[in-house]
Design a protein around this nucleic acid. Structure first.
Lengths: 127, 127
DNA sequence: CTCCATACTTACAAAAAAGTGCGTACTTAT
DNA sequence: ATAAGTACGCACTTTTTTGTAAGTATGGAG
């Protein structure tokens, strides 16, 4: 019996596990940042774009569609011109965002420890 | 003042933030699974390879090097032949792995809710 | 004597992700 | 009259990530 088969925590370790797809959306470069931005409340598309440094319109749109497809984000469009669209977290999305933020908060809190290691390891490599 | 600038949670929202690099390693396709696997204890390279369905040797090696470089994983090599190398989490790595696992546990627990949305959204698109 | 296992590395190829620039339809500000 | 803002879609290119296959040194099994 392999480790993956008797792993009590489920099937993530198995290739072709559908959970890996959701994981991909939530942990994608922009997915993480969208989720934590929306934790601060409803945002319009271009507000998100300005809030998240470096996203292109294309990537932001795609990420929002992924998260909407997973039921983590709700899109509400008003039929006016110029267009007006609002994005907010669903109940599911709030839970997801909390987990993601616990990760990012930890990273930011430990950034100094980690970059210590960067210098140390670079030194080892160079000698 | 932009939203990114007065964001009290730090600089992740700014492009070129070094924390984004760590985030990338931890949330990379294989980084997540390596951290979780190593939560179960020390593993040899090929044990990890068998435990994590679908990793190639190349990707596993690279992922382990990233995590080692960030100080989350410790590598210990015995100078014998055939080679014998063990990987384990550092104290920092244990903390990181806990956050990652809270994310994956949530995903697996909510996989059904999420795939409900998949069917719903597909239906909307097709009509 | 050949094959397998170990823990990788390297070169190359394929696939996926990301970025770029343009178009849209209409309003408001200049 | 022209430019800017809005929320994207589309076509195209570049970049990044991932996979594949092979090579390495050595001992033990068949």
């Amino acid at each position: 019996m392999t480790m993956a088969e008797n792993n009590p925590r489920g099937n993530l370790m198995a290739m072709n596990c559908p959970s890996r797809e959701v994981l991909k959306h939530m942990t994608s470069k922009w997915g993480v940042l969208v989720l934590i931005a929306l934790e601060g409340g409803t945002h319009r598309f271009s507000e998100l774009r300005r809030a998240i440094g470096g996203v292109s319109e294309r990537m932001l749109a795609q990420t929002l569609q992924w998260l909407e497809g997973d039921g983590l984000v709700q899109r509400r469009a008003y039929d006016v011109v110029p267009p007006h669209v609002e994005y907010r977290l669903t109940a599911l999305g709030v839970e997801a965002a909390q987990r993601v933020r616990s990760l990012t908060d930890w990273i930011e809190a430990n950034a100094l420890h980690i970059s210590d290691n960067w210098s140390k390891n670079r030194a080892e490599v160079s000698k």
